[in-house]
Simulated scan of single mutants.
Amino acid sequence: MTSTAEPDYWSLLGVDSDCTDQQLKRAFRREARRWHPDLNSNDPIAEERFKLVNEAYAVLSDPRRREAWQRGGGSRADVADPFAQGFPDFEDYLDVIFGGGTGRSSVEVDNEPESPFRGDDASGDDARRETRGHEPPVSSPPPPPPVRAVEDLESVVHLTPDQALQGTVVELTLDDGTVIELNTPPFAGDGWRLRLEGVAPGGRDHFLQLRVVTDDGLRIDGLRVLYKLMLFPPDAALGCAVDVPTLDGPVTLQVPPGSSSGRLLRLRGRGLQLDDELGDQLVEIVVVIPSDLGDAERALYRRLQELASESEQGG
């Protein structure tokens, strides 16, 4: 017998339970863009995270389902996967969810400079991780169409944190020799996509994907710095002190006991600064299982599995 902890939908979308409908929509749009598989082809967890984001919005945007979920009702086991036939183009997906067009300009930013998620304090005192049951996601409107088989023209542009924050001039040479010069927007972040409308041969669009990642693996998003911290299960379960990189050098972070993958810890004031504005660094816990477990380690995991099964049967 196995058990799966239900996700905290508020944390998944990075909003509080007293947020407005408009704030919920903005948060959903931001997180859907952040995790859409088309925009994260090299991230193996993007598809599952994107599905969870869709599920979270489906529940929280429906008062009846949200109330049922907060009471602890509902199950995910019998819900059909709306993306079983593939993932839609991102803009088609938003049109199905929200309706209407998106009103794009000739050079546009596929991102919103808002907080990508709500973090916990590094001390763990503000950590609020509740396990809740919930209702199935909304079954209508019907699932969006599969991804269109059209190859976008795209270039990757690497920026330093300062260039992303201040904005900089980028020069792009297309396949036909056309040279384009444009200014990147300030407060940009890693993974942002800029669309150059109609500049490619045949009147096609050309996309620029911004990469803003330091050698230490710090991702920049406006004033915020994002970092994934890999932990082995014992360290995540029991808590540990670990050194993590920041823009100003490594600092020691105290990881609270019982930290699951996806938990967010915040290092206040460790982000970028512009005038009087100072951002934070958000550390996301990622629990990893070693691929080369020894016999003794496997035996311990089997014993943990037995204890978990006994606990469920006893409850």
Results as ranks from 00 to 15, higher is better:
residue 2 T to P: 10
residue 3 S to N: 07
residue 4 T to A: 15
residue 5 A to V: 15
residue 7 P to Y: 05
residue 10 W to K: 06
residue 11 S to W: 00
residue 16 D to H: 11
residue 19 C to S: 14
residue 21 D to T: 06
residue 29 R to A: 15
residue 30 R to W: 00
residue 33 R to I: 05
residue 35 W to E: 09
residue 36 H to V: 00
residue 37 P to T: 09
residue 37 P to L: 13
residue 38 D to M: 05
residue 42 N to H: 13
residue 44 P to E: 10
residue 48 E to W: 01
residue 51 K to F: 00
residue 53 V to W: 00
residue 54 N to M: 03
residue 55 E to T: 02
residue 56 A to T: 05
residue 58 A to Q: 07
residue 58 A to C: 07
residue 62 D to M: 05
residue 66 R to L: 03
residue 67 E to A: 15
residue 67 E to I: 04
residue 71 R to C: 10
residue 72 G to S: 11
residue 74 G to Y: 03
residue 75 S to R: 11
residue 79 V to L: 07
residue 80 A to M: 07
residue 83 F to V: 10
residue 87 F to W: 12
residue 89 D to Y: 01
residue 91 E to H: 08
residue 92 D to L: 12
residue 93 Y to A: 04
residue 97 I to Q: 15
residue 108 E to Y: 11
residue 110 D to E: 15
residue 111 N to V: 01
residue 112 E to H: 12
residue 113 P to G: 05
residue 114 E to W: 03
residue 117 F to E: 04
residue 118 R to A: 10
residue 118 R to T: 07
residue 118 R to L: 08
residue 122 A to E: 13
residue 122 A to K: 08
residue 123 S to D: 15
residue 124 G to S: 12
residue 124 G to N: 08
residue 127 A to I: 04
residue 127 A to P: 00
residue 128 R to I: 06
residue 130 E to H: 12
residue 131 T to Q: 14
residue 132 R to M: 09
residue 135 E to G: 11
residue 140 S to T: 14
residue 142 P to H: 04
residue 143 P to S: 13
residue 145 P to F: 03
residue 146 P to I: 12
residue 149 A to H: 06
residue 150 V to Y: 03
residue 153 L to M: 08
residue 161 P to D: 05
residue 162 D to K: 14
residue 162 D to R: 15
residue 164 A to R: 10
residue 170 V to A: 13
residue 177 G to I: 03
residue 178 T to K: 13
residue 178 T to V: 13
residue 179 V to N: 04
residue 179 V to F: 01
residue 180 I to A: 04
residue 181 E to W: 01
residue 183 N to F: 04
residue 184 T to L: 06
residue 186 P to A: 15
residue 189 G to M: 08
residue 193 R to Q: 12
residue 200 A to G: 12
residue 203 G to W: 02
residue 205 D to M: 04
residue 206 H to P: 09
residue 209 Q to V: 10
residue 211 R to M: 09
residue 211 R to W: 01
residue 212 V to E: 08
residue 213 V to Y: 03
residue 213 V to N: 04
residue 215 D to Y: 00
residue 216 D to H: 08
residue 218 L to P: 07
residue 229 L to Q: 05
residue 231 L to G: 11
residue 245 P to H: 10
residue 255 V to Y: 01
residue 259 S to E: 02
residue 261 S to F: 01
residue 262 G to I: 00
residue 262 G to W: 00
residue 265 L to N: 04
residue 267 L to P: 02
residue 268 R to S: 13
residue 268 R to K: 10
residue 269 G to D: 11
residue 270 R to E: 13
residue 270 R to L: 03
residue 270 R to K: 15
residue 271 G to V: 02
residue 272 L to F: 02
residue 273 Q to S: 15
residue 275 D to F: 09
residue 275 D to M: 09
residue 278 L to W: 02
residue 287 V to I: 06
residue 289 I to P: 00
residue 293 L to C: 06
residue 294 G to H: 06
residue 295 D to H: 07
residue 297 E to H: 03
residue 298 R to W: 05
residue 300 L to M: 10
residue 300 L to K: 14
residue 303 R to C: 01
residue 307 L to M: 10
residue 307 L to A: 15
residue 310 E to N: 07
residue 311 S to P: 00
residue 311 S to T: 14
residue 315 G to V: 03
